[in-house]
């Protein structure tokens, strides 16, 4: 996943919260709390960076914490909160 391009699903709205953000999927009606500001920055930055690794670096996440973040992103992917970015999607 680290070397793959991802992006926020188009059906997801991110609402800033004091603890991070709330992600709501209008399609499957799933709700997920993002409990760290750094994770919010990573998720918001996915579309702007070549891959997950670049988004983690840009958000200032220490490399030692990347496995935890990748697990969290995998959880978000399982809920369709984030999706693999296609080549078409990469050219905005």
């Amino acid at each position: 996943m680290l070397g793959e391009p991802w992006t926020l699903s188009p059906a997801v709205a991110l609402r800033p919260e004091p603890f991070g953000a709330m992600a709501y999927h209008f399609g499957n009606r799933k709700l997920t709390f993002l409990k760290r500001m750094e994770l919010v920055q990573v998720v918001r930055g996915l579309a702007d960076h070549a891959d997950v690794r670049a988004a983690l670096v840009a958000a200032g996440v220490p490399e030692a914490q990347w496995p935890g973040y990748v697990d969290a992103l995998a959880g978000l992917a399982a809920a369709d909160m984030i999706r693999p970015r296609t080549m078409e999607g990469a050219v905005a």
Partner: peptide
């Protein structure tokens, strides 16, 4: 830092 400390899924139902 674990997945559980980063995200929490909520059942709206």
């Amino acid at each position: 830092v674990t997945s559980e400390s980063l995200i929490e899924e909520v059942s709206i139902d």
